[in-house]
């Protein structure tokens, strides 16, 4: 990795480990994740439910609930380690430089506060704007995210808006302070497909307009194909594959990624064909097998997979495509 590389990185997470303090003692949920986002890039983070996608993002901002803790690792954002920052400095970053869009638009807005005031909140707090300026900016933001009649919507309560509208409001709040990085945690999961498409288009437009980086967490690979520049595949709290989006879809390497891609139904499938799926379920935190966490479900599993943990290693000549799999690495050496 050259110095140039590191310099461009807006977010650089190294060895992030998150543990949950359960009844059966501490269990590792996120296991030494490395990931980075360069400036202006859209990173897709994909994986099944419960593989640690959301927890990783929450832990970056130290927003974890009580019994879940980051036990090691660092997360440099713009040259500062978010994990070591003082609470006060961190509050400036939250909402100011990193915008968050949450999964559930139905419950992530304060029900007793008008949406206009909620959009103004970060502006008043981070930008020190006057209330009037903040309201003007809020109107602009609502227009930006495509809400018709923004002036009157400012005075609406969240329950008076539809799910799609609320999600747009959430995005408007996330974008309020022109963040350098927008972290969107499955922002379209609760929405129907047409709204989903609108929101994806919106984020693409905004990204090119504002030049921000985006981390988009989802379990929907089809969505990622049209949105991301690079994709990180998570499984059981580890990164199993990291590749530019085209390379990932053209040449999925890790058996888990292949399984995920194979499970997307296509129009060319036979009408009565069974949907393809990966047998079994991800291991529970605290009950992960020794060796590769995917080994019990993996069609290519070898003895070494059940013994040692594979490292994330380059599998393409220029090194941008990486996978953590003994079988892939072996096949590569053989070739």
């Amino acid at each position: 990795m050259t110095a140039q590389d590191t310099k461009e990185r807006l977010l650089d997470v190294k060895g992030l480990t998150v543990e949950i303090d359960g009844r059966r003692g501490p269990a590792v949920v996120v296991d030494g994740i490395d990931l980075h986002v360069t400036k202006g890039e859209t990173l897709g983070v994909v994986g099944e439910s419960g593989c640690g996608k959301s927890l990783t993002m929450l832990s970056l901002m130290r927003l974890l609930p009580n019994k879940i803790k980051v036990t090691s690792g660092s997360a440099d954002f713009d040259g500062q380690d978010l994990q070591k920052m003082s609470a006060r400095a961190l509050r400036k970053v939250r909402g100011g430089e990193i915008g968050f869009v949450f999964q559930d638009p139905m419950t992530s807005l304060n029900p007793v506060m008008r949406v206009g005031d909620q959009i103004c909140e970060p502006l008043l707090y981070h930008r020190g704007m006057s209330r009037q300026d903040a309201r003007k900016r809020a109107v602009e933001l609502l227009r930006l995210v495509g809400i018709p009649g923004p002036e009157e919507r400012l005075n609406a309560y969240p329950h008076e808006l539809s799910g799609g509208m609320r999600q747009r409001v959430m995005i408007a709040i996330g974008l309020a302070c022109d963040p350098k990085l927008l972290i969107a945690d499955e922002p379209t999961t609760a929405l129907d497909v047409t709204i989903q498409a609108q929101i994806v288009d919106l984020v693409k437009q905004l990204r090119s307009k504002l030049g921000m980086s985006v981390v988009w967490i989802t379990h929907d690979l089809a969505l990622i194909a049209g949105l991301a520049d690079r994709v990180v595949v998570l499984y059981a709290g580890t990164v199993v594959e990291d590749a530019p989006v085209d390379a990932l879809f053209a040449n999925p390497s890790h058996p888990y990624t292949r399984g995920l891609l194979a499970s997307i139904p296509t129009l060319s499938d036979a009408p009565a064909a069974r949907l393809s799926s990966i047998g079994g379920t991800p291991p529970e935190p605290g009950r992960r097998p020794p060796g590769c966490p995917f080994a019990p479900r993996c069609p290519l599993a070898m003895d070494i997979c059940r013994r040692d943990v594979p490292k994330l290693e380059p599998i393409s000549s220029e090194g941008s495509h990486r996978a953590a799999c003994f079988a892939v690495q072996k096949a590569l050496k053989a070739a």
Binding site: R94, F102, T107, N110, E121, P122, Y125
Partner: peptide, 16 residues
């Protein structure tokens, strides 16, 4: 509730 986490993610102080 999620909106409390969301408010924290906005960098609002505990008092607010």
């Amino acid at each position: 509730r999620p909106y409390i986490t969301a408010a924290m993610a906005l960098g609002l102080s505990n008092r607010i």
